[in-house]
Design a protein around this nucleic acid. Structure first.
Lengths: 340, 340
DNA sequence: GCAGGGGATGTAACCGGTTACATTAAGGTA
DNA sequence: TACCTTAATGTAACCGGTTACATCCCCTGC
């Protein structure tokens, strides 16, 4: 049925394939009469051009690769929505590459560093190595990092040091001194960006107020509410217990709330909790948190990529956009208990 | 750099392109000596075959299309994970098509009904029309529906009538009589499957117990917690108020909990709430709900599609797999208040 | 009358692989 | 020695588009 080729159309319209191609691509130098004949033939044969053949011929893939850590980060959905919104009407196919191990990341980065695989690459939350970056540059394939940073590659990201700083200062200003920083593993091979930066912000805020840094107040837990719950139980059993927890992601914060409720520790009276990300659940649970524009970073990242694709081949200097974060004060933070 | 072609390799190894191609495809009739020479040339030139050219030549796209309602359904993520898990090592590219309007659905379905676009199609939660199905069959492109049903297309789905029945019977067995069914719009152009089926199950359970069906007990709200919250406020203001709400998705159920808390209506003492889907939040909130295997449907759907692709060209009869649902009794349902 | 210009169209090479078929050389058999 | 088989490799057509360049025709201007 739809196996008609451009030559079939040419035969039917009694013109050459070149002319048919010109009609398809709205080339000006086709007479209205001929154009009409070709259009008729196209309709009669129910013809539509073969995308793969077009791609080969044009030397483009008409494809954009989106590399995401699908399994590890819940925030990816919001970002992906932002990306999708922009790309859906761009004419590019959106190919999803899921990364759930360092090995897979390396594999994808290596194979994508070829113009033949994708015309452009959008990487969500996975920082590439210097070697990866070099390869991308050598291949001259436009890359945009979202929620990740590399000096040589364009990116849209947030200031995680600032976010950590805001959250911690908020707690300090409420009188807290024993503040735990709870994060996902800091040396996770897939994660060496945000969590460490947020810790930096935490330390900066402490230092500013002259509060000594206590290494036992930095606690790591595997991703997920469950792991945070267990970590929090251990924390709340300490004597004296911390009066506040700054969780480096909302999911962890929710796990902390979980543990507090179960142990009868009242939030925010006895324990303040701040999260990070402002995922939809955070609003529902009235969680104080650091808002980062998830959808927005996705959207801007995609737009930036399209801009790079317009420009002639990624030769220009990388463009970096840092988006602001904001502390959202909801119901899980309050003045520190006075028994200090 | 990576612009070496198969002819460059052939020249370097002093063989013909056919031989190089044979080496690439592990064709048996290549002498070990020649094979080694070719391999060396490939390595030296850092050659890798051009995927688009391969696809054109082979007449396959090496691509699978996944059509999802990204913006409307939160459950899609879990399903997509299941899909991704299976496809990531299949060698196929996964191209995402997001549908957020009937128009877009029609457009995608029309363009995908061509072998040239994708070797196979996985559709999540969007029932195709008879016309669409005909086109897919005519194009002989394998299609698997997940969480949707069409007699002529293979599918993996759950029994929504049963789910609605289970939820309602659960409430009835606890003594409830004024049970509201709260769902997303039943005539949403993108949604004419599950919500209506769950309603059928609801009515079936009522009928079995001889409880008259009250049309005012069927309430529709737009997707999202917010809309459900407002609908629930109106419901709880009725005199007498319903003693139970069966929400056709967990997000709605959470909106109901929201409203109840705000109005001081105790759950489950004064109001029982049952959700549907068992999204991760449901466990956290201790929501009684109907569990449907989200990840599992995605996984099985993808596996089924791969099976169809193995088989010679989708000529066979459609395969339907119905997965069981299960009522999860948590903390938001209890015996009806005795003031009835 | 003829050179020159420009619009409309056709011819054929090209993108980079795969593969049917042809060709060559080597080994085995009568 | 002549003949057949089989393994290894090469030649060239093909997948279905795009487009540089050639060609043809018609009109204008000197």
């Amino acid at each position: 049925m739809s196996k008609a080729t451009i030559r079939d159309v040419a035969r039917k319209a009694e013109v050459s394939v070149a002319t048919v191609s010109r009609v398809l691509n709205n080339h000006p130098s086709v007479s209205p009469f001929t154009r009409q004949r070709v259009m008729d033939a196209i309709r009669e044969l129910n013809y539509s051009p073969h995308p793969i053949a077009q791609r080969l011929s044009l030397g483009r893939t008409e494809t954009l690769a989106v590399v995401v850590p699908l399994f590890t980060l819940p925030s990816f959905v919001e970002r992906l929505r932002g990306v999708q919104k922009v790309l859906s009407h761009s004419g590019y196919d959106l190919v999803l590459f899921n990364v759930d191990s360092p090995h897979q990341r390396d594999e994808y980065f290596a194979t994508l560093a070829t113009r033949a695989r994708a015309d452009g690459i959008l990487v969500l939350s996975i920082p590439p190595s210097d070697e990866d970056a070099e390869r991308f540059l050598a291949a001259e394939v436009p890359v945009v990092l979202v929620d990740a940073y590399h000096p040589q590659l364009s990116s849209v990201y947030i200031d995680d040091v600032e976010g950590g700083y805001l959250a911690t200062r908020h707690l300090i200003s409420l009188g807290h001194r024993r503040i735990v920083y709870l994060s996902e593993p800091l040396n996770n091979p897939l994660e060496f960006g945000p969590m460490k930066k947020r810790l930096q912000g935490y330390r900066k805020a402490l230092a500013e107020e002259g509060i000594p840094f206590d290494p036992t107040c930095v606690v790591e837990a595997e991703p997920g509410r469950e792991a945070a719950y267990h970590a929090a139980r251990a924390l709340l059993a300490r004597r004296p217990p911390p009066t506040a927890v700054f969780a480096a992601c909302d999911t962890h914060a929710i796990g902390v709330l979980d543990a507090a409720r179960e142990l009868g520790v009242r939030v925010p009276e006895a324990l303040s909790v701040v999260g990070y990300d402002d995922i939809p659940d955070a609003a529902y649970l009235n969680l104080s948190t650091v808002h980062q524009p998830l959808f927005e970073t996705g959207r801007l990242g995609a737009e930036l990529l399209l801009t790079l694709l317009q420009g002639n081949g990624g030769k220009s200097a990388p463009i970096h956009r840092r988006l602001p974060v904001e502390l959202i004060h909801r119901a899980t933070t309050a003045f520190a208990p006075t028994d200090v």
